[in-house]
Structures are given as structure tokens and as C-alpha cells.
């Protein structure tokens, strides 16, 4: 088997790493950098100024008088704080869902009391009509559990088609173009930064889920998994402690791609004016201000450079080079 090595890297890979490190560093230090203006403070005396026209605004200002350099710096923070967690959360969600779907398929069985408790809890949480019915269902679960214990019998079980549920949901989400889905939700209900993070996560998990599921289908047939079953370990433990860590390998490659895709999506949303709140700095929104001031090339050039370099670097990072051991 080929072994992945970090020993030899091309110059482009090193440049990508340097650029991404710089972005992360700038994002981390945004609050303490000696910037003359915060991105939310307009300088009304200098509206749409070109770069170096005044000593205070090195990269110029936008049509609202915001300092372009500040917006780029704080936009980096937004990009890092929004897209990295969204990519990590979607990878986690996708790994758990895809891993479970691949490991158990449609053959998992869940004790009836858990079914009833879960149904009652979901009913209550979703605030469906007749909330007392949720309580009745949950109480029914407890009664069934108590009766089974009294008679010293194992809980009756019902099948849980995990694979069908996960893949069905992922396919349903995939049938709607992600941009349209996110724009529809964001434009209809309006979103905060946290809401946008949730929205990006909920729409980005199908891809990692498919990758992990495919890997898990191979892993579950390997001898060490069979040995763990034969040793009498509980199925959950086999899945979580032994199989899942091996099934996560594809995410190493997919993670930078996911970040790049989410960065592009966030910028598109901000460009369309349906993404982050206006007080949050964003490269995409800065890019969009060129529509108000078509002659202001600096409003297009600088955020475009940031976006292009970051996305190219992430793509480069995902292309890991196999090196002979």
C-alpha cells in the first residue's frame, strides 16, 4: 500500500501553506492589529477613495466609506470563523451519519422503548399539534421498558433503516442545488452568523457522509472488525472505536475542498446580499460593492485576490502526493 508522506512538497504546496497560514494568522490577530478604522466604522469624508489616495486608507475605501484593508482583515476572520467550523461540523455530521449507514445498513434494530421515547421527544421538540400525545407516546415507551424488565425478557425491537434514511436525506438535499436552497432559506427567513453556520453545515454534510459510507462498506468486511464482533464487543463499540477511525481517511482530502466550497458559497451569498448581517465584514460583500461604484477597481481586485488565492491554496492542499515508501 502506498503511504502518504509530507516529506517532499512542491513550491506551490508550500506557497499554499504559507498563504493559508497567513490568512489564519491575520484572522486570529484581526482584533489587535493597528488598523486605523474598524470595518464597521465609515469614514464619511473619504467615500470610494482609491488606494493610497489618503494616508489612512492604504487600500482605499468602499462606497460607504469603509476601509478596504480593515474589511479584508476582518473578512479573513469571518471566512475562517465561519467556513472552518462549518466544514468541521459538516464533516462530523457526515462522518457519523455516513459511518452508521455504511456499518449497519438497513439491518440495525432499536428496542421499541427507545423508538417510542425518541418519537415522543421529537414530537415535543418539533412542537407538533397535540403535545400531550408526545407525552403519551414517551410514557408508552417507559411502560414497555418496565414490563420487559419485570418479565426479565429482552426489549422487543423494530428495524431502523439507517442507510435508507441517511442516503435518502442526502439524495434529497443533493437534488436541490445548494446555492438555491441556501439563498431561499437565507432570503426568506434572514440569518444571523450562527444561523448561517447552521445552514451551511446542514447543507454540506451529504458529501462527507457519502465518502465515509463508501469507506465503511469496505472497512466492515475487514478481518479486524470481524474479530471484534467475534470477541463479543457491543456493536456500537466496534463501530465507534474500531471501524469509524479507519473510515475517516477520505475526509482528510475532502476537508480542504469543503472549506473552499463553503468559502465560495459564503462569498456568493454575501455578494447577493442574503448572507451575513451588514455589520459583519465579508470578502464577498466587499466584492459586491463594485456594483455601486463600477469604476472602483480596488473593490474588485483585492477581495478577488484573497478569494482566489485562498480557494486555490485549499484545492492545492487537498491534492496530496503519494510518495514511494
Amino acid at each position: 500500500m502506498a503511504r502518504l508522506s509530507s516529506g517532499s512538497r512542491s513550491w506551490s504546496h508550500k506557497a499554499a501553506c504559507v498563504w493559508l497560514a497567513l490568512v489564519v494568522l491575520v484572522a486570529g490577530l484581526a482584533g489587535v492589529l493597528p488598523l486605523p478604522y474598524l470595518p464597521s466604522v465609515p469614514d464619511l469624508a473619504h467615500i470610494a477613495q482609491p488606494p493610497f489616495a489618503t494616508s489612512q486608507h492604504w487600500l482605499g475605501t468602499d462606497p460607504q466609506g469603509r476601509d478596504v484593508l480593515s474589511v479584508l482583515v476582518f473578512g479573513a476572520r469571518t471566512a475562517v470563523l465561519l467556513t472552518l467550523p462549518a466544514a468541521a461540523l459538516s464533516a462530523l455530521l457526515g462522518a457519523l451519519a455516513g459511518g452508521a449507514a455504511g456499518f449497519w445498513g438497513n439491518k440495525a434494530r432499536l428496542p421499541v422503548p427507545y423508538w417510542l421515547l425518541a418519537t415522543g421527544g421529537a414530537w415535543w421538540a418539533l412542537r407538533l399539534p397535540i403535545p400531550t400525545l408526545a407525552l403519551v407516546i414517551a410514557a408508552g415507551g417507559l411502560v414497555v421498558a418496565a414490563l420487559a424488565r419485570l418479565r426479565q425478557r429482552p426489549f422487543p425491537t423494530w428495524a431502523v433503516p439507517i442507510n435508507a434514511i441517511v442516503m435518502g436525506t442526502a439524495t434529497t438535499l443533493d437534488t436541490i442545488p445548494r446555492l438555491i436552497l441556501v439563498v431561499a432559506v437565507a432570503a426568506g427567513a434572514g440569518v444571523s452568523s450562527a444561523g448561517l453556520l447552521g445552514l451551511l453545515t446542514l447543507t454540506a454534510w451529504p458529501h462527507p457522509a457519502r465518502l465515509v459510507r463508501a469507506q465503511m462498506l469496505r472497512i466492515r468486511e475487514l478481518p479486524f472488525v470481524e474479530a471484534a464482533h467475534a470477541a463479543g464487543l457491543p456493536a456500537f463499540q466496534v463501530w465507534f472505536r474500531h471501524a469509524l477511525p479507519h473510515a475517516l481517511q477520505p475526509l482528510r482530502t475532502a476537508m480542504p475542498l469543503s472549506v473552499a466550497s463553503l468559502l465560495g458559497l459564503e462569498s456568493t451569498l454575501s455578494f447577493l446580499g442574503v448572507g451575513l448581517p451588514p455589520e459583519v465584514a465579508s470578502w464577498g460583500r466587499l466584492l459586491s460593492t463594485v456594483r455601486q461604484e463600477p469604476a472602483a477597481w480596488w473593490l474588485f481586485l483585492f477581495p478577488a485576490i484573497c478569494l482566489i488565492f485562498t480557494i486555490l491554496s485549499l484545492l492545492n492542499l487537498s491534492r496530496q502526493q503519494p510518495v514511494a515508501a
Binding site: S40, L44, Q64, G273, P278, Q292
Partner: peptide, 14 residues
């Protein structure tokens, strides 16, 4: 999408 209102709101916020 109204530049004038956005600038007024931004200045007030600051």
C-alpha cells in the same frame, strides 16, 4: 440595496 440608507444606518451604528 439602497446605498444612501445603508450609509446612514452604518454611520448611526458606529
Amino acid at each position: 440595496n439602497e446605498d444612501v440608507f445603508a450609509t446612514v444606518a452604518l454611520q448611526f451604528r458606529a
